[in-house]
Design a protein around this nucleic acid. Sequence first.
DNA 1: GCAAAAGTGTTGTACGTACACCCATGG
DNA 2: CCATGGGTGTACGTACAACACTTTTGC
Lengths: 244, 244
Amino acid sequence: MENIIPNLSVDCVIFGFGANKLNVLLKERKLSDPQTGEVLINDFTLTGFHVFEGENLDTAAARTLYNITGLTNIFLEQFYAFGSTQRLASEKDQIWLQHLNLNVSNHVISVGYFSLVDSSKTSPDTEHPEAQWFPVDEVPELAFDHAEILAKALEHLRLKVRLEPIAYELLPEKFTIRELQDLYECILGTKFDRRNFRKKVMQMKYLIPLAEKQTGVAHKPAQKFIFSRDVYDRTKIEKLDFSI
Amino acid sequence: MENIIPNLSVDCVIFGFGANKLNVLLKERKLSDPQTGEVLINDFTLTGFHVFEGENLDTAAARTLYNITGLTNIFLEQFYAFGSTQRLASEKDQIWLQHLNLNVSNHVISVGYFSLVDSSKTSPDTEHPEAQWFPVDEVPELAFDHAEILAKALEHLRLKVRLEPIAYELLPEKFTIRELQDLYECILGTKFDRRNFRKKVMQMKYLIPLAEKQTGVAHKPAQKFIFSRDVYDRTKIEKLDFSI
DNA sequence: GCAAAAGTGTTGTACGTACACCCATGG
DNA sequence: CCATGGGTGTACGTACAACACTTTTGC
């Protein structure tokens, strides 16, 4: 076991898409008094961990993501560093940190990363029963400053999703236009006209139609598409129109 | 003097606009061998400093900015945290750190902030002769990973300037449409049609025309404008059009 | 044959783009 | 009076928004 850096951690905000909701993966944090059995803490945290000595920030984030999901090569991007001196100051958080008994500073800077996973690929329920998906608009009480971190991650996601084709990271490899639209509506909190949305995304050359169709649905089956990062990288152009 | 946190610093990328160029404020870093007089180091750094114990990141950034410019209440925004284990590893950087003789870790995480100042308000040349403005496309050799930090700051500035009216932070309080256009062209590296640019920005209600005009110019004097953050805050609407 | 979502086209409007001439001032 | 940049309007094309009906499947 390597030594942790006492005042530096990463927190991963892991987003998934399922049941027509944008979800975030949270870990339960539970502590009872050993004598009385009284519940001292019962809330949730993002999936974070301290950085090891000699470890890059990005590596630490990838490690944290792997430890909770078992996934590698996943979309993972730093979005903000949280460095308030008060971020671990609440009574519950202090009790928790003493309980962990790690060599932890009381002014920990945490670097926030957000990650997009196809939640059909990961099943934390089985391998990591302490981790659960929550719809981002129905998160329970969060530890530390994790509500703030989540809010900033969401803001960042909403920005990025309008600028780069990262939404595909949240979908299975093969998906329908409808699924894509649901996802965008869900992230951005809007509704789009079905015809106009289809017209718009069908212009994107990096959206490759497959011969394959939906099966087992009680209506006309939808065509499936894949996203081609290769085509995207070749065809993307810098947009310069500014919208102020 | 408070104690510094050995492994945590902030770096401010201070942008200014002058002589129709986007400039960045850099500090000279010079070291000669005390015996031989041989020049060991002669390059430039961003304006950074370690965070003090018990100090918020934002406070540390504002303090660093104040120390070099004497300015407070300046646009200052965090954009990225740099945490590579190799970022101080070059020979020159190691010599420099030993020379400073500070209690510094060899894995320092630096949180990058970018700042926008009206460079007509600050004259580092007089108060801080070691700091100089450099056009962002003509920066000299930079210490540490500061070239990377600057590149990321520029990228961030180019993004933000298209999303929020922050360009005004770089201009004097009263400015002409031409100056605004020059600034946008400079930041984004484009040219705009003068009539169309004017048409576009004149729609913005937060751009308040003054009775005042340019003086002392050998042509028709331009009208001056001010930016009203108040009007902006009242009239801004969330844009939801996504451009993928 | 019915329910349920897929798929498709047109029209009006708003906005971006391209472009040329007169105006006010200092020297 | 001349040089210099300020200030203005129009025509065109593109892109977005609004809107209704037919098609394919499972049951």
